[in-house]
Amino acid sequence: MQDSTKGIFLMIGACTIWGLSPIYYKLLVNVPPLELLAHRTFWSLVVFAGLLVVQGRLGKLRDALGTGRAVLITGFAALMISTNWFLFIFSVQIGQVRETSLGYYIFPLVAVLLGVVVLRERLAALQWVAVGLAALAVTTLTVGLGSAPWIALTLAVTFGAYGLVKKRLAVGAVVSVTAEVVLLGPLALLWLLWLQGQGTGVFGVDVRTSGLLVLSGLLTAFPMILFSAAAKKVNMATLGLLQYLNPTLQFFCAVVLFGEPLTPFHITTFGLIWIALALYSGAGLAQDRARRKSVMTSSAEPPA
């Protein structure tokens, strides 16, 4: 099997776990979202740190946290991803998986817009049209429902900011995520110990709940490992297209499994977003083909 094919299967595995994760969090609706976030953070630290120990790469954390600037960047990334995690958990518990799906559909377009504003990147005409359609979609839903889809927007912005700041880190994905939970882990552990001391913590109350809480670390780490491996084997255009499997499966969970209602405004909004993503992806694929053609042409030229 070719590396690119392996990469596609690895990416499908990662996105399937992410996309179906609302089912897991629905099983823990009895756990307050902040407590569940603390467990996810702590058990992720255990899994990620254990993985680096087994790989003999624990020393790589010095590269991620070795300077004050690195700590600040990693700390900001940790703040963005923990906010994202909390809001996702909260959304599942209040029956708004439909909005989490919308947020992760919007995310690539928000990330592109952040690139324009922060990194001064330039967009092709079709990409601008895609961003405009996304803005129209959000406006449609806001007017239709009488309030902005703040959950979707916050998820998209926090994940977009997270991806943007990660570009400034020289370490790999697994090491950088481990560094993030290293910073968050002590806070999570203190909160959990305080809850247990108050007698309000859910850990240890029953085997099922406790086991599911411990599983949150593996559920966080495993798809990240798959994603990191996939990123090394497939090009960015393919990676970007496959990522849409995540919000598509979340949409399936929301509408089919959880029975969340879809108003005409939601249908219109998702339709506009899907058209926007088709245009954006088409422009991205065209740029990727042009880059590869340019590389092949330049490599085929005889030396002077």
Rank of each mutant, 00 (worst) to 15 (best):
residue 272 L to W: 04
residue 132 G to H: 10
residue 298 S to K: 15
residue 171 V to P: 08
residue 265 F to P: 02
residue 299 S to P: 05
residue 125 A to H: 08
residue 75 G to I: 11
residue 124 A to L: 11
residue 57 R to K: 15
residue 130 A to E: 04
residue 246 N to V: 11
residue 71 V to H: 06
residue 51 L to M: 13
residue 244 Y to R: 01
residue 264 P to W: 05
residue 284 G to L: 07
residue 285 L to E: 12
residue 202 V to H: 10
residue 303 P to H: 08
residue 265 F to N: 13
residue 88 F to G: 02
residue 87 L to N: 11
residue 137 A to H: 07
residue 171 V to R: 06
residue 62 R to F: 13
residue 284 G to S: 09
residue 74 T to W: 00
residue 2 Q to R: 15
residue 299 S to N: 11
residue 266 H to K: 03
residue 21 S to Q: 12
residue 270 F to N: 09
residue 40 R to G: 10
residue 137 A to V: 05
residue 258 F to V: 04
residue 77 A to N: 06
residue 236 M to S: 10
residue 229 A to L: 15
residue 10 L to F: 15
residue 141 L to P: 05
residue 27 L to P: 05
residue 256 V to H: 03
residue 78 A to L: 00
residue 26 K to N: 13
residue 267 I to V: 15
residue 107 F to E: 12
residue 184 L to C: 04
residue 167 K to L: 00
residue 233 K to N: 09
residue 84 N to V: 07
residue 170 A to Y: 04
residue 227 F to K: 01
residue 197 G to N: 08
residue 301 E to C: 05
residue 7 G to Q: 08
residue 152 A to T: 03
residue 125 A to I: 09
residue 35 E to A: 09
residue 174 V to F: 01
residue 40 R to D: 07
residue 81 I to A: 01
residue 181 V to S: 07
residue 215 L to P: 06
residue 167 K to M: 08
residue 30 N to H: 12
residue 214 V to P: 01
residue 28 L to D: 06
residue 87 L to G: 13
residue 244 Y to W: 09
residue 165 V to T: 14
residue 135 A to K: 10
residue 151 I to M: 11
residue 254 A to C: 00
residue 288 D to K: 12
residue 8 I to E: 00
residue 179 A to G: 14
residue 78 A to M: 08
residue 242 L to D: 06
residue 59 G to H: 09
residue 298 S to W: 11
residue 240 G to K: 10
residue 120 R to L: 08
residue 263 T to G: 11
residue 130 A to P: 10
residue 220 T to L: 06
residue 212 L to E: 03
residue 128 W to G: 08
residue 21 S to M: 14
residue 87 L to C: 02
residue 132 G to E: 02
residue 180 E to P: 11
residue 241 L to N: 11
residue 167 K to Y: 04
residue 49 A to P: 00
residue 171 V to Q: 14
residue 295 V to K: 14
residue 301 E to A: 15
residue 289 R to E: 12
residue 190 L to N: 08
residue 260 E to S: 11
residue 295 V to F: 12
residue 93 Q to V: 01
residue 108 P to Y: 08
residue 303 P to V: 12
residue 87 L to A: 01
residue 13 G to F: 05
residue 20 L to P: 03
residue 263 T to L: 15
residue 191 W to V: 07
residue 235 N to I: 02
residue 38 A to M: 14
residue 130 A to Y: 05
residue 275 I to M: 14
residue 280 Y to E: 06
residue 1 M to V: 13
residue 83 T to C: 13
residue 211 G to C: 07
residue 138 V to T: 12
residue 143 V to H: 07
residue 304 A to I: 09
residue 216 S to F: 10
residue 239 L to E: 04
residue 177 V to Q: 11
residue 241 L to S: 12
residue 216 S to T: 14
residue 174 V to N: 15
residue 121 E to G: 03
residue 143 V to T: 11
residue 50 G to C: 05
residue 162 Y to F: 15
residue 188 A to H: 10
residue 179 A to E: 02
residue 179 A to T: 02
residue 102 L to M: 14
residue 67 T to Q: 07
residue 300 A to G: 12
residue 272 L to A: 13
residue 157 V to S: 03
residue 61 L to C: 04
residue 97 V to H: 09
residue 71 V to N: 04
residue 254 A to R: 05
residue 70 A to G: 12
residue 118 V to A: 10
residue 140 T to Q: 08
residue 5 T to V: 13
residue 117 V to W: 06
residue 12 I to P: 00
residue 274 W to P: 02
